[in-house]
Design a binder for these strands. Structure first.
Length: 361
DNA sequence: GAAACGTGGAA
DNA sequence: TTTCCAAGTTT
């Protein structure tokens, strides 16, 4: 199915196109395996435009693998704030520490070693090793899944994990000996800019002459992908518990959504008619002296698999000094910007802030 | 193999 | 508004 002619044409056309049209991205400035690694983790399920400012700020803050390894986790999470999938940051931090401990600070260069690091799967292994170490490995991401589907007119469901393995073998067959890193990036770049999910611009595609999907007229039908379930709606309460100076935050559970992140006290699965009951139960359990509570407002936040319908409540309390010292979850409101908060909690903060502003005027 | 895991931008 | 999805990995 892939003859010698096609392979050569694919390699030459794609590589030539890439060298002419590649975007100037910050992580392409050098081949430091650490920087390539950071960029690949950030890029997981995340757009290039979103990543660029995070990457620049992250590398500025942690210029070397060693400096990242020595940083506090809170600091690393703060640098990741708003990027999402926070386990990526925790895994990267843990993995970098392991590289220092086990490999003397040098990013390992074998597939076995590097893929054993936390957060480094099949794709990232291929990406780092091909780009930074010039090794002939496939790096199959969502772009490549789509490009390969069309290029060879394949109807495999790209949502299935087995398809990725099959496509890795195919990529390996067209990967050139000489620039596997450039070729992998070219495949992704093509998918991101030409062979796009909808309305691919086949007219200017460097692979049009060898694209079976195009020849079959299937460029708009491929790839085949099973539809995702829509996020499940959940009524949620956020509690803004304060004495005007201090605010009560909670550390979220180690497992699950926003694991280990600081956030407002959050109560899930509360139907509207039971909000009052749930809040009073919470205050009772926490043994907080409160004077009043009011509804600040409502908003929604959609995760990949959950759709939170949030009601934000403000609870005025009196906090004695003993209580503030007894646990470490009371924070000065003015210190909030120094704590890493997921977007959903930042939205609540903004809501409160805008309300406070409007009241002053 | 399916589900969990964040967020924002575009169709 | 809804749906899709963007350089995936882990459980």
């Amino acid at each position: 199915m892939i003859n010698e002619n096609n392979r050569k044409t694919i390699q030459q056309n794609l590589l030539m196109w890439y060298r002419e049209h590649q975007r100037d991205l910050p992580w392409r400035r050098d081949k430091d395996p650490y920087k390539i690694w950071v960029s690949e983790i950030m890029l997981q399920q995340t757009r290039v435009d979103t990543v660029i400012p995070y990457y620049n700020q992250f590398i500025k803050k942690f210029p070397s693998l060693h400096q990242l390894a020595q940083a506090d986790e809170e600091e690393v999470i703060k640098a990741w704030e708003g990027l999402g999938y926070y386990s990526r940051a925790r895994n990267l931090h843990a993995a970098v520490k392991e590289v220092v401990a086990k490999y003397g600070g040098k990013v390992p260069s074998t597939p076995e070693e590097i893929s054993s690091l936390k957060g480094v799967g099949s794709y990232t292994t291929g990406a780092i090793l091909s780009i930074a170490y010039n090794q002939k490995l496939a790096a199959v991401d969502g772009n490549v899944l789509r490009v390969i589907s069309r290029l060879f007119s394949l109807t495999d469901d790209i949502a299935k994990s087995t398809t990725r393995k099959k496509f890795e073998k195919i990529v390996l067959r067209i990967l050139p000996d000489h620039s596997p890193g450039d070729f992998n990036q070219a495949l992704m770049e093509l998918g991101a800019t030409i062979c796009t999910p909808t309305s691919p611009t086949c007219l200017i595609c460097p692979l049009r002459e060898v694209c079976k999907g195009f020849a079959d007229g299937l460029q708009d039908e491929l790839p085949i992908k099973k539809k995702l379930k829509s996020p499940k709606k959940v009524p949620v309460i956020f509690l803004w518990i304060t004495d005007g100076e201090y605010l009560l935050l909670e550390k979220r559970k180690k497992q699950g959504l926003l694991a280990g992140m600081w956030g407002l006290p959050t109560i899930e699965h509360v139907p509207k008619d039971k909000i009052k009951d749930e809040v009073e139960k919470y205050i009772m359990v926490k043994n907080i002296e409160h004077s009043s509570f009011e509804t600040i407002g409502s908003f929604e936040h959609i995760f990949s698999h959950r759709h939170w319908q949030i009601t934000l409540l403000r609870i005025s309390v009196h906090i004695n000094e003993q209580e503030k010292k007894r646990n470490d979850t009371w924070f000065r409101v003015q210190d909030l910007p120094q704590i890493a908060l997921a977007r959903v909690y930042q939205k609540a903060y903004q809501l409160i802030s805008s309300l406070a502003d409007s009241r002053k005027m």
